[in-house]
Computed example of a mutant assay.
Amino acid sequence: MIRIWFRRAVVAGALSAAAAVLAMAVGDLWVRAEAHGRVHSVASVPAAPVALVLGAEVYPGGEPSPFLAARLEIARQLLAAGKVRAILVSGDHMDWGYNEPGAMFQWLVDRGVPSQRIVLDHAGFDTYDSCARARRVFGVGAAIVVTQSYHIDRAVALCRRLGVDATGVGDDTVRVYREPWLHSVVRERGAVVKALADVVSRRDPVFLGPLEPGVEAALNS
């Protein structure tokens, strides 16, 4: 009896592992296909109305982590180069004491970006939510998505599937932080599976409200 149970457990474990590997492979192929030809450098990316900057860790004092600061610097460069006319910063503000969009806004303003050109999305809890809310809450039809290079294909793929005509610019400067970079690359393999599941389910973002005029106002300022 114990041998039979053990054999079944081994088979079930092997099947689960095979299914996970297959899901990661399918997810990886999907995001690569969706993003093919749509990821550029700051210099080569086609102009779009909005830069969508995806959130990342903010330190307890309110300072963006190097990963987030690198994304914000790309957005600043895009605005300075006339590639975009507004910046939508989207991140986690679930708890009162942790505010990614607020830190992103302050970083940009401190470096000369006009405040009226920046729009804050306080409910970008993951990439799917940021892309969905960019389209459904902020009315963004086309954007340059900004994140790290290991994440950019998934970000572009999700935004495109959710109605945003997206291109992307991915940062590589923070590769010098070897351990967190490698951790993020490994984590991305699982994240593509979640992205695929979110697209198939067409779930609503965690928070969904009426259309907000912030992006339109920023574009017209």
Results as ranks from 00 to 15, higher is better:
93 H>Q: 10
4 I>P: 11
126 D>F: 11
20 A>E: 04
48 A>E: 01
24 M>R: 06
172 D>W: 05
51 A>E: 09
58 V>Y: 09
118 I>V: 05
71 R>A: 01
152 I>F: 02
201 S>N: 01
42 V>R: 07
98 Y>S: 12
214 G>Y: 09
89 V>A: 00
79 L>P: 02
17 A>D: 09
203 R>V: 01
147 T>L: 04
60 P>H: 04
106 Q>T: 09
100 E>P: 06
81 A>S: 08
210 P>L: 14
72 L>M: 01
104 M>Q: 02
66 P>Q: 09
72 L>A: 07
57 E>S: 12
61 G>T: 01
27 G>M: 03
91 G>F: 02
5 W>P: 06
203 R>Y: 00
75 A>S: 11
30 W>L: 08
212 E>I: 13
199 V>E: 15
16 S>C: 09
103 A>P: 01
100 E>V: 02
149 S>T: 10
207 F>D: 11
150 Y>K: 08
33 A>N: 09
184 S>M: 13
93 H>A: 00
115 S>K: 12
21 V>H: 11
22 L>C: 15
76 R>Y: 07
179 E>T: 14
205 P>A: 10
31 V>D: 10
88 L>Y: 09
215 V>A: 09
184 S>Q: 13
204 D>E: 15
128 Y>F: 09
191 A>T: 04
168 G>H: 13
126 D>C: 12
151 H>E: 14
133 R>F: 01
58 V>P: 01
109 V>Q: 02
63 E>N: 05
102 G>K: 09
199 V>P: 08
219 L>P: 02
143 A>V: 03
123 A>V: 06
193 V>D: 04
128 Y>Q: 03
186 V>Q: 12
186 V>R: 14
121 D>L: 05
50 V>G: 07
117 R>S: 08
10 V>I: 15
132 A>W: 06
135 R>Q: 13
124 G>K: 12
22 L>H: 14
115 S>G: 12
3 R>Y: 01
121 D>R: 06
100 E>K: 05
127 T>V: 00
41 S>D: 07
52 L>Q: 01
65 S>I: 03
132 A>S: 15
197 A>G: 08
11 V>D: 08
202 R>L: 12
117 R>K: 15
146 V>T: 10
57 E>N: 10
197 A>H: 01
75 A>V: 00
200 V>D: 00
13 G>I: 14
198 D>Y: 07
184 S>G: 15
64 P>G: 04
54 L>R: 07
177 Y>R: 13
218 A>D: 05
167 T>G: 02
137 V>H: 03
15 L>E: 05
68 L>E: 08
218 A>S: 11
109 V>S: 10
207 F>G: 05
186 V>E: 13
41 S>L: 08
156 V>Y: 06
181 W>T: 14
82 G>H: 10
216 E>Q: 03
131 C>Y: 08
174 V>F: 13
177 Y>G: 08
21 V>Y: 04
4 I>A: 15
52 L>D: 10
192 V>T: 04
37 G>F: 00
122 H>Q: 04
48 A>K: 03
4 I>N: 12
86 A>V: 11
148 Q>I: 14
171 D>M: 09
88 L>H: 06
124 G>S: 14
183 H>G: 11
108 L>K: 06
56 A>C: 05
4 I>H: 07
143 A>R: 03
108 L>N: 03
97 G>L: 02
5 W>M: 13
89 V>W: 00
147 T>Y: 01
112 G>D: 00
70 A>E: 10
4 I>W: 06
45 V>N: 03
116 Q>R: 04
149 S>R: 11
95 D>M: 04
